[in-house]
Nucleic acid binder design. Sequence first.
DNA 1: AATATAATCAATAATGATTATCAATAAAGA
DNA 2: TCTTTATTGATAATCATTATTGATTATATT
Lengths: 145, 145
Amino acid sequence: MSVPDSRFDQLISALKEHNFRLTPQRVELVRLIAVSEGHPSASQLHAKIKRKFPTMSHATVYKTLSLLKEINQVLEIDLRDDSHYDGNRPDPHPHLICVNCNKIIDGELLIDQQSIQRMEQESGYKILRPQISFYGLCPDCKEEN
Amino acid sequence: MSVPDSRFDQLISALKEHNFRLTPQRVELVRLIAVSEGHPSASQLHAKIKRKFPTMSHATVYKTLSLLKEINQVLEIDLRDDSHYDGNRPDPHPHLICVNCNKIIDGELLIDQQSIQRMEQESGYKILRPQISFYGLCPDCKEEN
DNA sequence: AATATAATCAATAATGATTATCAATAAAGA
DNA sequence: TCTTTATTGATAATCATTATTGATTATATT
Ligand SMILES: [Mn+2]
Ligand SMILES: [Mn+2]
Ligand SMILES: [Zn+2]
Ligand SMILES: [Zn+2]
C-alpha cells in the first residue's frame, strides 16, 4: 500500500529520472507550479520565486519551464501576450480565458475522437497537440459590465 | 437578379458602411487578404504590399487589420510568435497548424453546442470567441521525417 | 579532500512582433 | 476648389522571449 505521490513529488521524480540536477531554484519553481491553483505565467512565477531567490533571472525560469515541458510535465498555454503554464495537468485540455482580467481555468469538454481522425484524414495533417481556448468573460468581469 | 458580391467587394462595402476612408493602401490590403488562399501574417502582407507601396509601414498594416477585425470582417489567429489572419472566413473556426513550416489550413470540426453551453454554466464564464488550434505536421513535413 | 568536468546560474544584450507618437498628407464632402 | 480631419509613415518605445557568456556550483574521479 503506497501513499499516492503528491504532484510535487511527481515533478521531482521526473526531474531525477531524466538526470536533471535538483537545484534549489528548480525545486522552488516546481513547488510553486505544483501548488498554483491558476495558470501562472513565467513572469508571475519569477516574481514569486524572487522572494526566496532575489537574484534569480527570467532566463532561469524560462529554461526550467521548457525543461519541464520537454519531459511532458508541464502544459504551455499560448496567449496573445505571453504563455501561461499548467503544472498539474500536463496533457492538453481546454481552457476558459477571461479577456478582461486574464483569469484562466480548466474547461471540461469532450472532444469527439472520431471527428479528429476524420480531420486528419481529410487534411493529411498529423495532429500532435490540440489547443482549445475559449476567450470570454469570467464571472466577476461579466458583472462589471 | 444580382450577382453575388466577391469577397473583395464585401470587404470594401463594409469599410464604406463604417465610414472608413478608402485609401489605396487599404484597398490593396483588402485585395490581398481577399485573394490569399492561406492565412497570412501581418509581416507577410506587409512584404507583398510593399511591391505596390514601397513606403507602406508596418503600423499601417496593423491598423488596417485591427480595423477590419473591429467590424468583424477578419479573423485573427494567435500563434506563439505572431498572428495570422483569415479574411475569407471571419467567424471563428478551427485551424490545422504545421509546427514545422507554419502552414495553416481550415479544419472542419463540428463543435457540440450543447457541451459549450454546459461549460458556460459550470464555469460561469461568458464565452465570446473560441479558438481551436490543432498543432501538428502538414503532409509535406510529415514525409520529411 | 582535492581536482577535473560538466551543468547551471545570472547578468546582459539581442531579437522580433506589436504599439505609440506625431508631423505631413490626402480622402471626402461642401 | 476648399476645408476638415482621418490616415499615413517614419521613428521610437515596449515587452516577452532567447542568446551569450563568464562565474559559480554540483558531481564524479582520484
Ligand atoms: Mn489547465
Ligand atoms: Mn481559416
Ligand atoms: Zn475576468
Ligand atoms: Zn509543414
